[in-house]
């Protein structure tokens, strides 16, 4: 589930719905907390979070896109 909206912080202004390039909030209604209707279509680029005036959007990074990392010998 990509964008996660904090219902307590959300001011229901609909700006994330307006701006999302993938329209993952499709069918969300004006004046209500947006619904993530198409989470799989999220591009994870944060247009919504950048737009949100209330800081109400967080992201849960899907397991499939976690980045592998390690400390190389000279970094230990």
């Amino acid at each position: 589930m990509p964008p996660v909206i904090n219902k307590d912080k959300c001011i229901r202004c609909g700006q994330c719905v307006d701006v999302c390039p993938m329209d993952v909030f499709y069918s969300s209604k004006k004046g209500e907390t947006p619904v993530v209707r198409y989470p799989d279509e999220c591009w994870h680029a944060e247009a919504c979070a950048l737009q949100c005036p209330a800081g109400a959007i967080d992201f849960r990074i899907p397991l499939t896109i976690m980045v592998p990392f390690r400390k190389l010998p000279h970094e230990r």
């Binding site: 944060e46 990074i61 980045v67 990392f69 390690r70």
Partner: peptide, 20 residues
């Protein structure tokens, strides 16, 4: 931005950690 958010969430500091 989301990639950096992910690095923060996972505690990846690129100063001494390499990413694949």
């Amino acid at each position: 931005s989301t990639l950096l958010r992910h690095f923060r969430q996972e505690g990846i500091d690129m100063i001494d950690t390499a990413v694949e």
